[in-house]
Design a protein around this nucleic acid. Structure first.
Length: 405
DNA sequence: ATTAGGG
DNA sequence: CCCTAAT
């Protein structure tokens, strides 16, 4: 079974990377299509050390390992790969875009659906309860399951996740119960807040774990919210954590309610009546849509939700700027970032600003000792930086062009 | 509605 | 990232 996946995926990736190696522009063009695949490819482009097949081998290794260990989720890990694999050929093949992604993604989920039953590992008591209640909220629950698997087996985490699921059940219908049930019924909006907070804190404390996970098993799905942690990671790893992937998939799956989540538009969604589904999606999702709820918590930490800019994204941005010019951010967003719901035009501009700063900064610093440290801060490939610098020369950008001493 | 600039 | 002022 694995071999099959491996074969297809490898071939797809290989062709992909081959193109990449040949022409840099090609990459830019292809970038517009898919993020997930590109993520991988760019990773290779960036560190140039790991070969695609090697990387994937690790992935498979992980999947196999998970299966061997008797974790239910193997059914989940694999389809994951399937999704990737099914996308790459389409990508190299023709100019399909968001549609293609959506299709393959949904397929992935469906596959999960069928294979997913054993996905509840480490769920002693709740497992039964959950199965009883499964019928109605099947979709949502499955989402959770996927998440659970993604987050690896962790006592604390899984317990938290458990509570999450439990909460859903509680809301779906009252369940009779034991001591634990006490916890289950409680979780209200308040709890949700608490949870998200705890979650981020927890992750901060677990740098080692995540690092190991990212490096050891190359678990691309391991999602990290706290930006601090990501910054502290080494460049290679950093680029190997495509947050978009999981989010994209999720978003597509729940596309029904997906109207506009998170920040994309901030004006409209304030006084919209909340559907019951929304409750679920809100907790099934990450901290993204917390802002919508207008609570104190999101009031003071504004940049709570941040997505790391992957090199592929930066690439796209630079391409867009060189194509349409500086200042045409809406266009760039529309044409090159259609697949990513987040990343508003403003974000693009901000990123560009930062890029300029970074490039000019790097130009000034030539010390090797500095380079070591700075290397950790910016995994940006030289070619990219070069392009940024060129664009910086051509396009005058207020403030930044002035070259702060 | 978009963009520039600043926090 | 977020917010605000200016277009």
């Amino acid at each position: 079974m694995e071999t099959c996946f491996f074969h297809v995926f490898k071939s797809g990736l290989d062709s992909k990377t081959a193109q990449d190696g040949e022409d840099e522009l090609e990459l830019g063009v292809l970038d517009g299509l898919l993020d997930e695949v590109e993520e991988i490819e760019d990773l290779h482009a960036a560190d140039g050390l790991a070969s695609p097949s090697e990387d994937f081998l690790l992935d498979i290794g992980f999947a196999a390992k998970a299966c061997g260990l008797g974790f239910g989720p193997c059914g989940v890990s694999l389809p994951r790969n399937v999704s990737c694999e099914s996308q790459s050929p389409g990508l190299s093949g023709s100019s399909n875009s968001a549609v293609g992604i959506s299709e393959s993604s949904s397929v992935t989920i469906q596959e999960n659906d069928s294979l997913n039953k054993p996905a509840t590992y480490q769920l002693p008591v709740f497992r039964h309860k959950r199965r009883h209640k499964m019928p109605v909220q099947s979709i949502d629950l499955h989402n959770h399951n996927i998440l659970d698997d993604d987050d690896e087996d962790d006592p604390l985490l899984s317990s938290m996740l458990l509570n999450r699921n439990g909460k859903n059940l509680g809301e779906g219908s009252k369940i009779g119960a034991s001591r634990r049930e006490k916890r289950l019924r409680k979780p209200t909006q308040r709890y949700i807040e608490e949870f998200s907070d705890k979650k981020s804190k927890y992750f901060k404390g677990q740098e080692k774990f995540s690092a190991v996970a990212a490096a050891g098993m190359k678990d691309k799905r391991l999602k990290v919210r706290s930006s601090d942690e990501e910054r502290s990671m080494r460049p290679g790893m950093l680029s190997s954590v495509p947050e978009e992937l999981s989010c994209e998939t999720k978003t597509l799956v729940v596309s029904e309610f997906r109207a506009r989540r998170g920040r994309p538009k901030k004006q409209a969604s304030t006084s919209v009546p909340k559907l019951k589904e929304e409750v679920f999606t809100s907790d099934s999702d990450d901290d993204d849509d917390h802002r919508v709820k207008r609570k104190r918590s999101d009031k003071h930490d504004r940049r709570k939700h941040q997505r790391m800019w992957t090199i592929s994204e930066v690439n796209k941005l630079v391409d867009g700027i060189s194509e349409y010019g500086v200042g045409r951010w809406t266009d760039i967003k529309r044409l090159l970032f259609t697949s990513s719901a987040y990343r508003t035009p403003i974000d693009l501009r901000d990123k560009w600003r930062n890029l300029l700063r970074a490039s000019s900064l790097q130009k000034l610093k030539k010390r090797e000792a500095e380079e070591k440290q700075s290397h950790a801060l910016r995994p940006l490939p030289k070619s990219l930086i070069r392009r940024v610098r060129e664009l910086a020369k051509v396009h005058p950008y207020p403030r930044e062009r002035g070259q702060k001493r």
